[in-house]
Design a protein around this nucleic acid. Sequence first.
DNA 1: CGACCAATTGAGACAAGTCAAAGCATGTGG
DNA 2: CCACATGCTTTGACTTGTCTCAATTGGTCG
Lengths: 275, 275
Amino acid sequence: MQVFRNRLSQYVTLDDVIWSEFEKLQTQNKAYEAGDDLIRVGQRPKHVFLLTEGWAIRHRTLEDGRRQIVNFMLPGDVFDLQVLAGLEADHGVTAVNRTATMRIEADEFITMLKKSGPLASAFWWSAVQEESILREQIVRVGRRSARERIGHLLLELQRRLQAAIGSDNDVMPLPLTRTDLADALGLTPVHVSRTMSALRRAGLIEESRGRVKILDADKLARQSHFDMDYLHMRRLDLLNGSDGMNGHAAAHNGNGSSHQGLTASTLRPPRSRDY
Amino acid sequence: MQVFRNRLSQYVTLDDVIWSEFEKLQTQNKAYEAGDDLIRVGQRPKHVFLLTEGWAIRHRTLEDGRRQIVNFMLPGDVFDLQVLAGLEADHGVTAVNRTATMRIEADEFITMLKKSGPLASAFWWSAVQEESILREQIVRVGRRSARERIGHLLLELQRRLQAAIGSDNDVMPLPLTRTDLADALGLTPVHVSRTMSALRRAGLIEESRGRVKILDADKLARQSHFDMDYLHMRRLDLLNGSDGMNGHAAAHNGNGSSHQGLTASTLRPPRSRDY
DNA sequence: CGACCAATTGAGACAAGTCAAAGCATGTGG
DNA sequence: CCACATGCTTTGACTTGTCTCAATTGGTCG
């Protein structure tokens, strides 16, 4: 429970009154073993999941067995808000290790969203952040080398774990096999193994018994092109009150960090493509 | 305007009364030339965009110039709903060709969502679908060969265009350079060129003047592992009325198409990873 | 007709994949 | 408590898909 308060407080100020709204919800606890499916492809789950302990993966498998892990769900994560649309899942969700969840009936969840502005706001944020994570995953897999992918993912996971658990320790659990990593990063287990050995030899990380220690986070971040702003989300309120969405609009209207790169298209107008 | 009614009607039944809600909105039209930025990294846009004509890309560029296109925005698409969170954009949105947009102030948009259940529902759906597209992009880039990536993307774009415009024609505009495709698919322009030549030689597609014709959609789909169910979203209502979210919950509780693949993990329980 | 920009093609290089054999843990049963 | 079985990881040798560099062709627009 505390995990969620931690997590949602990243986004929005939650005083005890608001929080009690949340605690009043009818929830149903359920635990899973490593390898159990929380959501199976083609199912139409009727509830929203809150992950309190353990890790889970969202993944899709092609007919010939190739598997892609779309993202990782860590303690404090909420999914599938999309379920509120009543759709069949087009991907599975599976526990990586022993996992504890709270489930909330879709309609009860919706009612709660309607009643409480701040909570609606917090969950909206968490959905926005999830999308941001998906986009980053696309960039990682599409445009980074194996070494960068691994370094980048480790840093992301570390950061997300810190946000959830608050352990500012530089050693973190990593309950993933090389195959899991490979399937997340679009690589082969063999190549993941080799590349992680290289990271170890380079003195960037250290591993033992399912835990990783990031020895030189700055260097790793530089080498992986990890954007230090990524997932830094300042707290802003919206929807929570009739005024919502106002105060902040004008502030900081982005000169932007302007690391624009030197794409040809910025130099001269491209040729017309209005066929 | 018709584009949106087309598009949103995919998700939810919109009668004239509801639709007039939407048409009452204060909108601001704005056109862009090819290469113009609709949203720049670091900006904090104050409105939601509706794309009425033309294509746009959402992209992110690394400091060393590598660019990844995260997804394509086609006529009828709505973005960035995330902007409602008041965050700085972590990626840019740029017009591919001449583009026409309608913009709605964030707070006005929110007010509309609160007032009209069906419209809220429709936009929620469109957000869910967008996420589904992002996930599919991850699978494409992470686990598919160059040939599959291209075939798969072409089919997705075709299907999305059909949904927006309704042209059930098998020839479609493709205002993208090989570099654009490469940046979307995590490839090199050179290799995109080679691979598309191969598709042409194989009699799967035909190109001329910024248009593609898919000659054998079935074969292309099979070869690209394009899931014919992808983006087929049955219409379901939610949020729109106090009852919402009920009727459909029980139906079709997924035996699932069960093309599960033969991952080792399905055979015997994996080793414990609870360190 | 030039001037550009995009697309194509070729030759060679390299990152990542494949196949296969050891090596290490962790857990279990005698 | 040791020994073996199991599943994961590592390492090696070799293959391949994709990238790089560079030159040529083709289309569009002024």
